[in-house]
Design a protein around this nucleic acid. Structure first.
Lengths: 339, 339
DNA sequence: ACAGGTTACGAAAACGTTATAGTTTTAATA
DNA sequence: TATTAAAACTATAACGTTTTCGTAACCTGT
């Protein structure tokens, strides 16, 4: 790479001091107009840009924020990242992204790395393995140092930091209620193992809806998907046990897989079985029939998280941690019956 | 945020010089074992980490690479990023991601920003708008400065930089040939406007396959999708003009949309119409029937791009730009007839 | 007791910038 | 012509490291 041009080199060229060049480039009128313009022209010609490392070291801020997400090949998380990116860019920050790949160790490493002064703050969502392990010391260390941190979606309620989540319970409740109100009586739940907090919350909403409508809660109608095995087979087992007339799944993939299983077994959707998913991505939109889903506004979530973080970073006084709860809405398409 | 502990503070604590502390923490035996251990213990206790900005400024390398992609909510691009992340992390680098959102201006800004010393090198894929505008001066500036640059997927053949692409022509040719060999005679193409290079290349492969099998090339069977309008309607128009018995689409979304349109018009897949898509994402896998696709190995592409970049960054001599062409393979599922 | 070597540490420059506090030069005033 | 103020520029410290070189103090053997 061609060596970069620096203040020093420009200074030598004009036989003036570095400070003069610095000021000239800042268009300070401490420097004569004549010299100023010459220096500026020269700098432009050689495409001078202040070395960002030096500037950051000097200003004691990086204008970079770190993002730790479990996965990026994932509609919801990538939408969140897009939201984060939008806000941070508008406000003059850049984004450094690390993936935990749902691994505890990698998450710890990422967090460790980010605290060496390379970022001004962090936005994170907890990996599945960490949730299973229930070990949050790496986050707690951050908070002890008052490191600006915003958690989103997969959070830990105990942390005293900014949080942005969606109202999983209500979302699931609305979805389940909608199934009930359109005539379903035997509603299955396809969810994650209970240690995934959002799965647990959505299950809670599902149960609540059943109870408030006076329906029986039947564990035979529930599947906790083990992702290490075939999703399809696990759903087929549900059908073998007990054929539902409605299915609420906690994500797109489970929902569409359930729909496909139902179809293969000869059931019509939504006539025989209604299906509702969670997260409104292309999978839901392109499914046949298009899937009714709980839309969780990932883009908004990312934007909100970024706003919270930058506000915290830029504020002088310390502000109370906030918790923003985003409500979901039900996007009704063709996989459920009309009222 | 709690002020970070520095060498200076540790030095003051022990009433020794900064150099001593620095060496002690590096376990240099220039420092007496006794003092060394005391300093190390102290540093550990206070969770000392070298300020990465200072280290980077000193070493004149950031150990960060920049990535500029058109979009992140996109299976292929996110797979590439995952590949990049894997390699860079293994080799001790971090990734800074910027999105161009398919916009020329944002792409230029991103590139500009990255050349202020914040990254050691760049991996990029060109935005659609840039391809339309055909203005590549921002990339050319980089190359003039010998800035380490690797382009992937959406590249410009004229640049003398490392490139990683897939063999779009062959991929499309194989897909089309497969349609022909399984009995299709009237094969439609659903592609992008011609200025999107990968679209153009895939069209080329489609045409080549037709010709080599002695089939007529019929523009009536081609759709260049304008994404500003409804994809579905544009494909419906194709059916109104001329009903195909095979469809080759240049991406997942077009393929599944085509399949849905065909289904709604009462055609059976694959009995009446076979469909092949491009990119093997969840949309293809979860479609009903599961979609036969050209798999473009995004993860591998990301890994290769990262390897090329880091090799270039770390090598002393300048190395010749390389062009890696990844071959695709056809994943045969249920949307095409068996031979 | 003293050259010679070893051990243990410190000083200072360097990375590229910014900002504060001078200092010199020029011009204006009495 | 001496005084003063304004204009134009410089020196320096600072951000937090790393690294090369230098130098005390101590020990060893003769």
């Amino acid at each position: 790479m061609r060596p970069k041009i620096t203040l020093k080199k420009i200074a030598k060229e004009f036989e003036v001091s570095i400070s003069t060049v610095s000021k000239a480039l800042k268009d300070s009128n401490e420097i004569s107009k004549d010299l100023r313009e010459k220096i500026q022209a020269f700098a432009k010609l050689y495409n001078y840009k202040p070395n960002s490392l030096a500037v950051r070291l000097q200003n004691q801020q990086t204008k970079v924020i770190g993002v730790v997400v479990p996965d990026i090949v994932h509609h919801f998380f990538s939408m969140v990242i897009r939201g984060i990116e939008e806000v941070t860019n508008q406000r003059g920050y850049n984004v450094m992204i690390c993936l935990s790949n749902e691994s505890f160790d990698k998450e710890v490493m990422n967090i460790e790395m980010f605290t060496n002064g390379s970022v001004d703050g962090l936005i994170a969502s907890i990996s599945k393995e960490t949730q299973k392990k229930n070990d949050y010391s790496h986050f707690k260390n951050l908070l002890e140092d008052d490191f600006p941190l915003v958690m989103f979606d997969r959070i830990n309620e105990d942390f005293s930091c900014d949080k942005v989540i969606i109202d999983d319970v209500s979302g699931a409740m609305n979805a389940t209620s909608h199934l009930i109100e359109t005539g379903c009586k035997k509603i299955a739940l396809v969810t994650t193992p209970n240690e995934i907090t959002v799965g647990a919350l959505r299950k809670k909403g599902y149960v609540k809806a059943l109870q408030s409508h006076g329906l029986e809660v039947d564990t035979n109608l529930m599947v906790e998907v083990n992702e290490k095995q075939s999703i399809q087979e696990q759903i087929e087992e549900l059908f073998d046990r007990n054929v539902p007339d409605g299915i609420f799944a906690v994500n797109e993939v489970y929902a569409v897989t359930a729909m496909n299983v139902a179809r293969e077994k000869g059931y019509k959707i939504p006539e025989d079985i209604s299906v509702i998913g969670f997260t409104d991505g292309p999978i839901s939109q392109l499914a046949l029939p298009p899937l009714t889903t709980v839309v969780q506004h990932g883009f908004t979530m990312g934007k909100q998280a970024a706003e919270l973080l930058l506000d915290r970073i830029e504020s002088k006084e310390d502000i109370q941690p906030q918790k923003i709860v985003l409500s979901t809405n039900l996007k009704i398409r063709k996989s459920t019956k009309s009222v």
